[in-house]
Design a protein around this nucleic acid. Structure first.
Lengths: 298, 298
DNA sequence: CCAGATCAATCGAAAAAACCGAATATTAAG
DNA sequence: CTTAATATTCGGTTTTTTCGATTGATCTGG
């Protein structure tokens, strides 16, 4: 019974060749001669008893076995890299950077409140924040460019196999308006009036919009939509300056009052905004990612 | 900027030493001399700039850095092993075995119905089934002794970081009784009568029991419990032979009628039994595991 | 269509790494 | 105290990796 251990050096050459798309480029990248790569690659193929590449023209192409092997090699060398990084950290197990993507639709204040406990727990942590659209961020997450993504949307069915989402908090939604708007004659003060009031809404793709549409439908409202926004901060800015009635999570009430002089007009008790942390399903999570996920409310 | 590549051979020695608990045992296992291990281990420590072991007495003990490294090494060499296995399969990407754990509380017929599509899709697949208690099975799953676990229970909060559960199907519960029991004078036929009827129930820890307790409480029933069972098959056998009224998922109605001559007495429309597939959060799932998870109902 | 350039594979020799035998130091057990 | 078990260090040997030179195939530009 032969059981030759897998040669990880050979596998690493194979992986580099596949990534770089050729023996020559891989050799340059690794600082060795192409003959070396070619020879060791041959050994690997003999060891495992499968051809990994076929020579088509003067180019190498992955075989089916090669593609399969590459999937594993990707994981293996990613882990190796992270092992190295983990051991390079002065404080063991505590990565010194946490790279987080924040969806445009998440209010900055909410993002702050979610991240604050993590930052406080590790004073020397460097937090790196990126903003963007949901798809953009989850894609960056898959490519290991981000450690975690904060969003107001759950994952779609298709993504649930590659990523995991965890609901961190939820908050009822309210309709707000700047005091300047409310002091005008004939200002809307209750549900019935909203049919004619100027309304600012999140754009179609957001989950909050969907739920608001359902609510307005149920209440029989056909509001006068004067603006749609992708970015919740922009929506708030317009709304806070009196451009129209606007929805926001009720955690923001105090901030809206202080910063924009805007008031809660009505709270939609059964329309909730959920906030999710989306991460890769790693069994070796970054300490800070683990803390963030654990901070989920019951 | 120094960036010496991680030496996986050294890491493998380190991993084996940690697993076997000593240089000597590791050397024997790997078929090399202890000096070799010791030397290569020293090189690894110099390469990464951390001591991995401290010599306490004549034994080696992992340092903090060592424990951290070991977590990664575990993943890496598990992947290496699986890479080898995957490439050994005659049909690429199709593991020829699927090892599944089935919780005692899952009816055999349900397990069959859930697994049948997977088996049919791959005729040459060898299915290996183990039964046991929930904790036993999830533990085996964590140690990679099982590919997947079928259960009627969702994961607890604590386990959700290491394992993922997916609801595959759900089914309303009914109360059944053998015809022989129903033909006796004064047999229970509706809710009110159950207070005095002999009742068989799942044991305390199962999720079905919890929900049944809630239901009975809501209906004001204080049944005469004549038996509690861990294993749903055993419960069904007792119930089917007339030992008492017993609960079961309504998918089983036909089977119960044919095999035991038992009848559905009442269907609890708002008490549902959910069936879950629990697996490791791997990004490289076994094809069959992937199929099973994908077969979830909407 | 041909000449030069590019690429991967092969071969044998040189370099590097891994390995082992003997010896040492330390510790636990009898 | 002696003995057995353990990890380590030091030299020399063996194995593996690497490279230079070469070959054969393929693409590109004139």
């Amino acid at each position: 019974m032969s059981k030759p251990e897998l040669n990880y050096k050979h596998l690493h050459y194979f992986w580099t060749v596949a990534k770089e798309g050729g023996v020559a480029r891989a050799a340059e990248r690794l600082g060795v001669s192409p003959q070396t790569i070619s020879g060791q690659l041959g050994k690997l193929e003999r060891d495992i008893g499968r051809t990994l590449f076929t020579q088509v023209g003067r180019r190498l192409e992955l075989t089916e076995a090669g593609r399969e092997a590459l999937r594993y090699a990707d994981e293996i060398f990613l882990l190796g890299e992270r092992l190295r990084e983990a051991l390079d950290e002065p404080a063991l197990g505590q990565a010194s950077r946490l790279t987080v993507g924040i969806a445009d639709s998440v209010p900055k204040l909410v993002a702050y409140k979610l991240l604050a406990p993590v930052v406080e727990a590790s004073p020397q942590l460097r937090l790196v924040c990126h903003e963007g659209e949901f798809d953009e961020l989850t894609s960056a997450l898959s490519r290991h460019k981000l450690d975690i993504v904060l969003s107001d949307r759950d994952l779609g069915q298709a993504q649930q196999r590659r990523l995991v989402a965890r609901r961190l908090a939820s908050c009822p939604i309210g309709i707000y308006a700047a005091r300047s708007l409310l002091e005008k004659p004939g200002a809307a003060r209750n549900i019935a009036d909203f049919s004619h009031a100027p309304m600012l809404l999140p754009s179609k793709r957001t989950s909050m919009r969907t739920r608001l549409d359902v609510w307005m439908d149920a209440e029989g409202l056909t509001p006068n939509v004067v603006g749609e926004f992708d970015d919740s901060a922009l929506l708030t800015t317009f709304g806070g300056n009196g451009a129209g009635y606007f929805p926001a999570a009720t955690v923001l009430t105090e901030m809206l009052s202080r910063q924009y002089d805007a008031e809660l007009v009505i709270e939609l008790s059964d329309v909730n905004e959920g906030y999710y942390a989306i991460s890769l399903p790693s069994r070796l999570p970054n300490l800070h990612v683990a803390r963030l996920l654990q901070s989920a409310l019951p």
